[in-house]
Simulated assay, not measured.
Amino acid sequence: MAWALAFSLVATISGIHHVNERVDRAQWPIYDAGFIFWGAAIVAGQFSASARFEAGDGAAGGLSRASSVWRFALAAAIW
């Protein structure tokens, strides 16, 4: 996921690719920035969930691996 975010960031900055090219050209940066920020939020959420899982033993204070995976899948599905 982090690789895809980095690729999208480079492609957007270089002008090779835009998220939504069907809208007016003046709105392209808004869609591009929204995509980059949403991708960064998903990556940050996954790192946070992974860190909480590793900090606990899964039952006492930390998240279970299944819970971490389902929360990430839910965030991706909402997107």
Rank of each mutant, 00 (worst) to 15 (best):
A40N: 02
S68P: 03
A59N: 11
A33E: 01
V19N: 10
W79T: 14
I13V: 14
R52L: 12
A41R: 11
N20M: 03
P29S: 04
A59C: 02
S8W: 08
A51M: 05
S50G: 06
G58T: 07
G56Y: 09
S48D: 10
V69H: 05
I78M: 14
A41M: 15
I13T: 13
A6D: 12
S67I: 01
N20V: 01
G34M: 09
Q46E: 14
F37R: 05
A60R: 15
G62C: 10
S68V: 14
G39H: 11
F7V: 14
P29W: 03
W28Q: 09
A55D: 06
G39R: 00
L63W: 01
F37E: 00
S67N: 05
W3Y: 15
R25G: 00
A60V: 12
S68Y: 04
A60D: 14
R52K: 13
V69W: 11
F53D: 04
S48I: 08
I78L: 15
L63P: 00
A26V: 08
V43K: 00
A49Y: 13
H17R: 07
A4Q: 09
A6T: 08
G45Q: 11
W79N: 13
G39P: 01
I30Q: 02
A2W: 14
H18V: 10
S14E: 01
I42G: 04
A51F: 03
G58W: 02
F53C: 03
L74R: 10
N20F: 01
R71S: 08
A44W: 08
I30W: 12
I36T: 10
F47W: 11
T12I: 15
V43M: 00
S14I: 02
I42F: 02
S50L: 12
W28K: 08
A33I: 13
L63N: 02
G15K: 05
A2H: 15
A59T: 10
S50C: 01
Q27A: 13
A73G: 02
V23H: 00
S48H: 07
A40K: 04
A51Y: 04
Y31N: 13
P29L: 00
F47I: 03
A55T: 03
V43A: 02
I16W: 07
R22W: 01
W28M: 03
V19L: 07
F53Y: 11
Q27T: 09
T12E: 11
R52M: 09
A73S: 10
R71H: 04
I42T: 03
Y31C: 07
P29V: 01
R65F: 00
R52C: 05
F7G: 06
R52Q: 10
R71D: 08
W3C: 07
V23K: 06
A33R: 12
W79Y: 15
R22Y: 01
A59H: 08
V23C: 07
F37P: 02
F47S: 02
D24M: 00
V43C: 07
W28C: 03
S14L: 09
A44E: 04
